[in-house]
Design a protein around this nucleic acid. Sequence first.
DNA 1: CTCCTAACTTAATCACCTT
DNA 2: AAGGTGATTAAGTTAGGAG
Length: 176
Amino acid sequence: MPAKCRRSRTKFTEEQLKILIDAFNQKPYPGYAAKKRLALQVNTEESRIQIWFQNRRARHQFPKRPGERLDARQGRGPPAEQTPGRGDRRSRTSYTNSQLQTLIEEFKVNPYPGIDSREKLAKEIGVPESRVQVWFQNRRSRQNTQKEREPGEAVDQGQNQGQDLRDGTVQGTATT
DNA sequence: CTCCTAACTTAATCACCTT
DNA sequence: AAGGTGATTAAGTTAGGAG
């Protein structure tokens, strides 16, 4: 096995879970600052907190209603306080040209980098691993929508895409 | 093996900036 | 206003580990 694909599964302790669940019950859509605070509290990364909340919202019912953003005709519930997205977000990461170039080069080689590749890349360009992951997500998604616009080209990818060989272990010829 | 759930995916959308 | 792109979301999938 060349490189790890997925990050190893996080095991939350009872105590951590207690804090997380409690926070979730109070606010299922925490803003960036709240997530960071929680991350500190339970001694884990903010990205793990984000994933945890995503999964929790998807699999458990919770009192607050996200779809209410379009509604809000009644003054019953606290409004923006729990609204998704619109609260405080992580400030936008701005990539330099050379950082972008590194990312794009890697994307050509392997659009589905595993955790090892992502961390390596992150370290190389000096950006958190979670930002690298998001960059790849956006890149893949937007590449797909652009293909639909101009489908008249042969695709190198073939139908056998990522899932199997996400991590190519393609080291060696790095930068010139 | 089955069940729960962390990790991951796409697609849509939000937010903010530049043109 | 339109375009680009990073950040966040919902919904669905993959996989690790406990029972």
